[in-house]
Design a protein around this nucleic acid. Structure first.
Lengths: 185, 185
DNA sequence: GGACCTATTTATAATTG
DNA sequence: TCAATTATAAATAGGTC
């Protein structure tokens, strides 16, 4: 805090980052960026996308829309059972289990998607509201200052209801919402 | 020449592009952009990357760094035995895909969450609320990070309803927000 | 690791040729 | 259809906490 150093982006050259820490940070940031861009591509154009990223000496990451395997199958051009050649002997059952599990989770994902689509109308209104007001303070302050009593009461009641709901959140296991992201188990 | 119309980038909705021509143009541009980003990621961090993109009603496109395409084909499995050139790499990618698949759905959940955030600006809304309503910062901020989906959904709906009410404000009397504080009746 | 900030660089939607 | 332009929106490197 004592020193105010120069921030902001600097031009970057397309070369391997030698510093290990910087490389790791860049990997995480850019990996998410690529996935995000891929998600936009798939959503906006309806294309199927599958991505595999394998950092050196760490666990692989993937992105799939709707999922990697089907995208690969399309790429190859045919549906086929699990290959007997490269995987292990019991791979068949592993695949079956994995696919069944994927189906179930995909159902949940699809319902999520449906909810998202269903809510698009309301959300677009919110976006319009957002764009019309630049300042963070103004966003809330402006309209509320001009509310009448009944509207203010509704707001208050709504906030109270929300408070109760939020405070009494359950202890459901499995997927959860943490730090702005949904996490498995 | 005589007319100077407004060009420039507009904000973009994360939704399917209905116009076929625009969709096609966007697909080509963004596909190349994703590949470019992936190449930067691979080059700068040394990670291995494979991407497959299947547009609707057209042939697939792929990107690989260094040589993922062949490996993907091997993973899906041709009937004939794999090329004797690189069996070790084949196994490596089989493992890679298998492990990656388990993370894939979670990744897509996060992508969906990004989409929700984009449409609703939920997090920024919450931040704004926190800043505007200092006295109620804690009850809102704390539990939200631990919410499960249905509760987050309720919160979203509640916010939407509230905002719709707030949007259509009247001008009667003094309940509201002044000098950074909520004025209770 | 993650969240947030900011000066810049990039990406890109709409448009023109 | 494709390449260039351009005004903006978005991404992001480097930093702080």
């Amino acid at each position: 805090m004592s020193t105010r150093l120069i921030k902001g982006r600097k031009s970057v050259r397309l070369a391997r980052i030698e510093n290990q820490n910087n490389r790791q940070v860049t990997f995480s940031k850019r990996r998410n960026s690529v996935f995000k861009k891929a998600n936009e591509l798939a959503t906006m154009t309806g294309a199927e996308v599958g991505i595999i990223v394998c950092p050196q000496g760490s666990k692989p990451y993937s992105f799939g829309h709707p999922n990697v395997n089907e995208t690969i199958n399309k790429y190859v051009g045919e549906e086929r059972p699990p290959s007997p050649s490269s995987p292990g002997i019991d791979d068949k059952y592993v695949q079956m289990f994995r696919k069944a599990n994927s189906r179930e989770l995909n159902t949940r994902l699809n319902s999520l998607q449906d909810q998202l689509d269903f809510e698009l109308n309301l959300k677009s209104k919110l976006k319009q509201m957002n764009k019309s007001v630049e300042s963070q303070q103004e966003w809330f302050k402006g309209p509320i200052e001009k509310m009448n009593y009944s509207e203010a009461s509704m707001l208050k009641k709504g906030l109270e209801d929300l408070l109760l709901k939020v405070k009494n959140y359950g202890t459901e296991r499995g997927y959860g919402y943490e730090n702005g992201k949904w996490k498995a188990e």
